[in-house]
């Protein structure tokens, strides 16, 4: 078989779409500079951060800061408790994310329907995204979390977790619907023309040609919104539900020390970074697969 052509430089899938922060970009220049470059980078990094740490630790205010934010004993006490309650946040945001993926897709598809007869559906989808992107998330949580149970209507759930999930799913579905829609609109009309020319119906064209390409393109911005949602799961604290932030708050007030907040912040950082790397890996795998010649 003849040699495959070199892979194109421009990744068509990624064109015009932010690819998310890639850790590899930071390291990229080192690959061209070789071993000497790596050695220089190591030394300069140690010196640079060494100086900063030395300056901070020797400043007059450091002991106070250390006690208020980085108390090892309080950290050891708080961290396991916070992690234990953080599973409640995980339950809230994972459940919300599942609904967001589905609801946002429905809204985006409704909004991209053509034809006069679909006007009411398009209008409804547009009104929904406008409304829920406009209202502050915390306000939606107040409205539903306190308002809905207060109605005391039979059959309406009174669980604050239930309404917190509904509120987060409603708000973030509006954002994600717009992300999906951008993805759908980024698929070139010639792709639709090709599929329709084969005799595929609108629905099958959407399913087999438009949506698979749209979703691949929006995975990085989708992750942005999911990270936002995960962080906003802390807003549930306003309902008095004892999740991770509330737990941190309690430990903070018992000790008059902010270390529990730092511990919780650490938890958020630790769960976010692997997700970012996972998306990088996913995007890279897709790119390689499309450009790799099978069986060569």
């Amino acid at each position: 078989m003849s040699g495959p052509p070199p892979p194109p430089d421009v990744d068509q899938y990624q064109a015009g779409v932010p690819s998310g922060d890639r850790g590899s970009k930071i390291l990229a220049p080192l690959r061209t500079e070789g071993a000497r470059g790596v050695a220089i980078a190591v030394v300069s990094t140690i010196v640079f951060f060494g100086v900063i740490v030395f300056a901070v630790v020797n400043s007059s205010g450091w002991p106070l800061i250390k006690e208020a934010f980085f108390d090892p004993e309080i950290f050891a006490e708080a961290f396991p408790k916070i992690v234990e309650k953080f599973w409640r946040n995980v339950f809230i945001f994972v459940t919300a994310e599942v609904f967001v993926l589905i609801v946002a897709m429905i809204v985006a598809v409704l909004r991209s329907l053509r034809g006069a007869v679909f006007f009411p559906l398009r209008a409804l989808a547009a009104a929904y995204t406008d409304l829920f992107r406009a209202i502050p998330t915390i306000l939606v949580i107040f409205l539903l979390g306190f308002g809905a149970p207060a109605l005391q209507i039979k059959g309406v759930p009174r669980s604050d977790v239930f309404w917190a999930i509904v509120a987060l799913a409603l708000v973030y579905s509006a954002y994600v619907a717009e992300v999906y829609r951008a993805g759908i609109e980024s698929v070139h009309p010639s792709q639709v023309a090709s599929a329709r020319a084969l005799g595929l119906s609108r629905r099958k064209t959407l399913r087999f040609v438009v949506l698979p390409q749209a979703v691949r393109r929006v995975i990085p911005p989708l992750l942005n919104d999911f990270i936002g949602l995960q962080k906003d799961s802390a807003l549930v604290v306003v309902l008095g539900y004892q999740e991770a932030l509330r737990t941190a708050q309690i430990i903070q007030s018992e000790n008059f020390d902010f270390t529990p907040y730092v511990a919780l912040a650490l938890v958020y950082v630790v769960i976010t970074i692997p997700q970012a790397r996972f998306v990088d890996w996913l995007v890279e795998r897709d790119r390689k697969r499309r450009q790799a010649a099978v069986g060569v």
Binding site: A193, S194, L198, G199, Q213
Partner: peptide
């Protein structure tokens, strides 16, 4: 359309 084949200038294959 199932009975009419069309081929475009820009190929328009499905990249995915």
């Amino acid at each position: 359309r199932q009975h009419i084949g069309i081929v475009f200038q820009a190929f328009n294959l499905f990249p995915h």
